[in-house]
């Protein structure tokens, strides 16, 4: 795990209070808190002097930001071209069924978030799924299921 900043203030201290650091701040908060709460967003806006409406626009425009709490574990299914041709889409659909959530959503018990990404740059190992930080190269639905079970048991 990365070292987590206790409070949003600690993250704010890393960047000067200028509008151009909006995205960097949101990225750090996303990485360390898992999502961007309304409260965090307000603090960021106060710090950078960006209007709230523009910060919301930015955080909904970019795919990597979430404005809702995320699951304990993140499952990323690559849907880049190489992974698509090798069955990535089927893998994603299988996981949606298995977890009972759509891609981009989090299970009710907040255990898992399921995401799809466009290429992780490991195309030679297609199809690729990433569980938290662990890459599953040349994978299939059976192997992913086993890895998820293992995580769930932990």
């Amino acid at each position: 795990m990365k070292e987590q900043a206790e409070t949003i203030d600690e993250i704010l201290d890393r960047y000067p209070g200028e509008p151009r650091y909006l995205i960097s701040l949101l990225q750090d908060i996303q990485a360390e808190h898992g999502y961007i709460s309304r409260e965090a967003m307000t603090l960021v806006c106060g710090h950078t002097g960006v209007p709230l409406s523009r910060a919301w626009a930015a955080s909904t425009f970019y795919k990597s930001f979430s404005v809702e709490p995320r699951g304990e574990h993140t499952i990323k299914v690559c849907l880049g071209t190489a992974c698509h041709l090798k069955g990535g889409t089927r893998l994603a659909e299988g996981l949606e069924r298995e977890l009972g959530v759509k891609s981009g959503c989090t299970t009710k018990d907040l255990r898992f978030s399921l995401d799809t990404v466009n290429c992780l740059g490991a195309c030679a190992l297609a199809p690729v799924v990433v569980l938290d930080e662990e890459y599953l190269p040349n994978t299939n639905s059976k192997k992913v299921k086993q890895s998820i079970k293992r995580l769930d048991a932990e």
Partner: peptide, 24 residues
């Protein structure tokens, strides 16, 4: 500057707005 997951940000003008801290 780290990208934040938007394909269009590879396009020059969108990339600039993104570095400036806005939606690309």
């Amino acid at each position: 500057a780290r990208g934040a997951g938007a394909f269009v940000c590879g396009e020059s003008t969108a990339l600039f707005t993104s570095i400036e801290g806005r939606a690309g």
